[in-house]
């Protein structure tokens, strides 16, 4: 049974078709990479699944439930965690408080006005931080973390609402090559340990082939290939757009 099932997703911007007829599914514990050249429609696809953009047509189902066109907030409530291409954390809080915040939201304890928040879910927050290797930084301000650590923190926050699905948009953008693989292998361990489905976009092919179970290739809004690393490497259409002939995005 798949966690996420996407059927026939369409989106146009002013007559330009950004995504056309995209369908796929992700199983629990599976790492599914969404790749393609710039402008292929990866982010549009991603934002339709995450609720940032409403699709023109098609459906997005999570655990069999229809979530098409819901707001990001509602989608989060259905068990979707998300990390962003440009890290988004709460700069005026400590690392631990960032995770506590996610836990408070997950346990629906936001509308409480009296008891101090700092004492809530401390153990759970530290456990999550330990999972991503940030336990030593728990008391520091989130704003002073190194970039790679911020990415880990985002992961811990996203895990805070015990998601069934993790959406990671360019999770390793801006990181050093060695850190990239480490972060994604960490994600992979967590995903298989918790049975979380992971859908991510990525530019670094080393990362993609190293950690993904399956790969989807988008070009000009269309799904042109799907399969495991070996199949994608061997696929002539994929080789063409990545190795470059007149048909690539570079040819404009």
């Amino acid at each position: 049974m798949s966690v996420l099932v996407v059927r026939g997703l369409h989106k146009s911007f002013g007559g330009v078709e950004a995504v056309g007829d995209v369908s796929f599914a992700v199983a629990p514990g599976e790492m599914l990479a969404l790749i393609g050249p710039n402008g292929a429609g990866k982010s549009t696809c991603f934002n339709m699944v995450g609720g940032q953009l409403p699709p023109d047509s098609g459906s997005v189902r999570l655990d069999g439930r229809e979530i098409t066109g819901l707001s990001p907030r509602a989608i989060s409530g259905h068990g979707v965690g998300r990390t962003f291409q440009i890290t988004a954390t709460f700069g005026s809080m400590t690392v631990r408080e960032n995770v506590q915040m996610a836990l408070l939201a997950h346990h629906r304890e936001i509308w409480r006005f009296w008891r101090p928040a700092a004492a809530r879910h401390v153990a759970a927050a530290e456990a999550l931080l330990a999972q991503v290797g940030l336990e030593a930084q728990a008391g520091r301000a989130a704003g002073v973390l190194a970039y790679g650590d911020l990415k880990r923190l985002e992961l811990a926050i996203a895990l805070g609402n015990a998601p069934r699905l993790l959406l990671m948009d360019e999770p390793t953008a801006g990181m050093a090559p060695a850190e990239r693989v480490a972060l994604m292998q960490l994600t992979r361990r967590i995903a298989s340990g918790r049975g979380v489905a992971v859908l991510f976009t990525e530019h670094d092919m080393d990362v993609v082939f190293d950690v993904s179970d399956r790969i989807l290739v988008l070009n000009r809004g269309r799904l042109i290939a799907e399969g495991d690393g070996a199949a994608i490497r061997a696929n002539p259409a994929v080789r063409e757009i990545y190795l470059g002939t007149g048909a690539t995005s570079g040819g404009h």
């Binding site: 990001p72 962003f84 988004a88 954390t89 709460f90 809080m93 936001i110 928040a117």
Partner: peptide, 16 residues
């Protein structure tokens, strides 16, 4: 309180 933290969270990063 949790509400105060959430308010601050919304200010720090609305998307997050």
């Amino acid at each position: 309180s949790p509400y105060g933290y959430a308010l601050r969270a919304a200010r720090d990063s609305a998307v997050r």
